Amino acid sequence: MKRRTLIHALAALPVLPALPAQAATKIHVYKNESCDCCAGWVKHLSSAGFAVQVTTTDDTIAVRKKVGIPDAFGACHTATVEGYAIEGHVPAPEIRRLLALKPQAIGLAVPSMPVGSPGMEYGDRKDPYKVLLIDRQGRDTVFATYPK
């Protein structure tokens, strides 16, 4: 590129319209008010750029049932995002990947509360765990694996 062309291109930059900022993806988390690990997961989502709305509830099991996550995949909190259910300590990158792939599924789950998953940090300890994709029949397949 010639220097003159570059100078003209740079001079035009201030008159270009500003590109609209991409809105943060909204995610709605249902959690027990006193649960610290749920609060840690909410912080993880916020740090990853999600716009998090939190609803406290004493009955997360009812929320899980309402969004279609089978009890076998239960954890301590449930979220909804763009028509999908997210159960447990699912890492934000996996939620982003789910939203990009848009599979025919109920959503993602990390059953139980594995140490080292987002919100379940405990020093340097990291237990292996799997992120499961739950299909519309309630069956699971491995969506991602997190080794030690």
Rank of each mutant, 00 (worst) to 15 (best):
L6G: 09
I7A: 15
A9T: 10
L10G: 08
A11R: 09
P14Y: 06
V15Q: 12
P17F: 14
A18F: 14
A21D: 03
Q22R: 12
Q22V: 15
A24L: 09
T25N: 08
K26A: 14
K26D: 14
I27N: 02
H28A: 08
H28G: 00
N32D: 14
N32G: 12
E33K: 11
S34C: 02
S34Q: 08
S34M: 01
D36H: 13
C37G: 07
A39V: 07
A39P: 03
G40P: 02
G40R: 03
G40Y: 06
H44P: 06
L45T: 00
L45R: 02
S46P: 05
S46D: 12
S47H: 13
A48N: 12
G49Y: 10
F50L: 04
Q53K: 14
Q53C: 00
Q53W: 01
V54Y: 02
V54A: 08
T57K: 03
D58M: 13
T60C: 13
I61V: 14
A62T: 12
R64V: 10
K65P: 08
K66V: 02
K66G: 06
G68S: 10
I69E: 00
D71A: 15
A72I: 11
G74R: 08
H77L: 12
H77Q: 11
H77F: 11
T78I: 10
A79T: 00
T80Y: 06
G83Y: 00
G83W: 01
G83I: 03
A85L: 11
I86V: 15
I86E: 04
I86K: 01
E87T: 05
H89S: 03
H89N: 04
H89E: 07
A92K: 02
E94R: 09
I95E: 06
R97Q: 10
R97S: 05
L99C: 05
L101D: 15
K102G: 10
P103Y: 00
Q104N: 14
G107Y: 01
L108T: 04
A109F: 04
S112E: 07
M113L: 09
P114R: 01
G116Y: 00
P118N: 10
G119I: 02
M120P: 05
G123P: 11
G123T: 04
K126G: 01
Y129G: 03
K130F: 06
L132S: 09
R136W: 06
R136S: 06
D140S: 15
V142S: 05
T145L: 11
K148C: 02
K148E: 12
